[in-house]
Structure formats: structure tokens, C-alpha cells
Computed example of a mutant assay.
Amino acid sequence: MSIRDTADSPRRRIIEAALELLEGGGSDAVSTRAVAAAAGMQPPAIYRHFGDKDGLLEAVAEHGYAQFLETKRAQLDLSPKDPVEELRRGWDMVVEFGISRPELFAVMNRATGSGTDAAHQAGLEILHGRVRRLAAAGWLRVDEELAAQIIQATGRGGVITWHSTPAERRNPALLTVLRESMVAAVTRAEPTVPATESGPAPAARALRAALPDDTDVLSDAEQRLLREWLTRLAADGGMPQA
């Protein structure tokens, strides 16, 4: 949260009023007049702080990302030591957020501003950290980047499918099956010991995950080259054969 968005700032009051209207009536309910009235201000204040309605919705999306990241970071402190269970809990948290706050989730996914992009990248760093821990423990069966994409796609797809399905036809089992399908796609049934498993891909994934971000042993150019080689080796044969 920036200094300009402190709890008692006019800008923050406008954002929170807009968020309440959004979650109560959708984006159509977020008119400048309605937001100004809810925030106890005049409409020109919205134009002064946000430019127009699109700018206001971008700020609402950024505020939503901040709340979302706060929850994700808090979850890191409570995550189980088992990286597969950590993956499940992280996926469940994202999906629960999207299902319980559909209007905000939709606005966040449409946002393109620099603030939301930075927050999105921060969320991706948490996701990639989870994937790296899977790889380091010998659980990962696909390349790290592909695993992150599968996790994202199934989570977002589950939320979209849930909301596009009539309420009387929604089945919570869909989310459980989708989550377990994701887990099966990116992890092995049992962790492997890369040194004894045939093929270079598992060893490359584990070694790349264990590499420090910086080391005095290798130059920057050597580190980049090593990571490139490991990435290529990790992708080779990463997907299970049919």
C-alpha cells in the first residue's frame, strides 16, 4: 500500500467505496456519481485522483491484489513442510478467493496498470517458489515453467467455469477433481532421488532448483549458461509418456 492510500486518505475512501459497490452490484454499479456519494465526496474528486472510471477500477484492482498478496504471504508462514500439500493449499486459496469475490477477481484479471502488474509479478514469485521447492525435493515431473502455467491455468479455469455454470448445477467436486488432476500433472506419485533415477531431466530439475541466485564460484555468464543447459535438460523427457 502506498502512502497516498493510507486508511484515512480521500483516495483510499474512494477505492473502498468503489470496491463495496463493485462487489454488491458489479462494475455497472461503479459510476462516478454513486462512488462519490458512497465516499461522501463530490464527483470531481474521482477525476482528480483517478482520471476516469477505468482509472478507478485499476486502483480497485491494485487494492484487491494487495489484499490477495497479504493473504498469500500469511499462508507461507502456515504452510506444511510437505511441498505437495503446500501446493494444494496454495491452489485452494487462489480458487476460494476467485469464487468468493467474483467481481473483484474479474476486475483484477482485466487490469493492465503498472501497479497491478507489479502485484501480479509478486504473486508469481510466490508461485514459482512453491514450484522450486517441489523440484528441489524431487517431486516435480515437468519443467518448472510448465508446472507454474498448469497451476495457474487450472486455478483460473476452475474459477471461470464455476461462475459460468448456473448455481443449481455447480458441484464442489469439480474443484477437488481439478485440483487433484493438476497435482497429478505436475508431481510424481513418490519423490525421486535424482542421482539414482534414469535420465537427466529429474536431476537437472533438482539441481537447477538448488542453485543459489548468486555464487562466487561461477561468473555471471557461466551461471546463465549453466541455467540454460539445465533448463534444456529438465525439459527433455519431462512429460510422462502416454
Rank of each mutant, 00 (worst) to 15 (best):
Q121H: 11
P102Q: 13
Y65F: 15
N171R: 14
L127V: 08
A34V: 05
A135D: 02
W162E: 10
D117N: 09
A38T: 07
S164T: 10
G158Y: 14
S31Y: 03
A148D: 06
D236Y: 09
R179D: 03
D77F: 03
L76G: 03
H163I: 04
A137K: 07
A111L: 10
E222W: 03
L140I: 13
L225W: 14
R11Q: 15
G115M: 05
G40M: 10
S181H: 10
H49P: 00
R33P: 00
A39H: 02
F68G: 00
S31L: 01
M108E: 15
A136G: 05
V177N: 06
M239I: 12
R170N: 13
R133V: 05
A29D: 14
P194K: 07
R179S: 03
R4L: 11
W229K: 07
R232P: 00
A234G: 01
E62W: 12
K81F: 12
M1I: 08
L76V: 07
V142C: 00
A66K: 08
A34M: 05
A74M: 06
Y65V: 02
L134C: 02
A189M: 04
R33D: 13
T71S: 05
L57V: 12
E190H: 10
A201C: 01
H120G: 09
L230G: 04
W162P: 00
A195N: 11
R110P: 02
R12V: 05
D28A: 12
E16S: 06
A61E: 14
G51T: 08
D82G: 02
R101T: 09
D82M: 04
L69I: 14
V131T: 02
E125T: 07
R170H: 05
T215D: 12
I151E: 04
I46L: 15
T215L: 01
P80R: 08
T196S: 14
P10I: 08
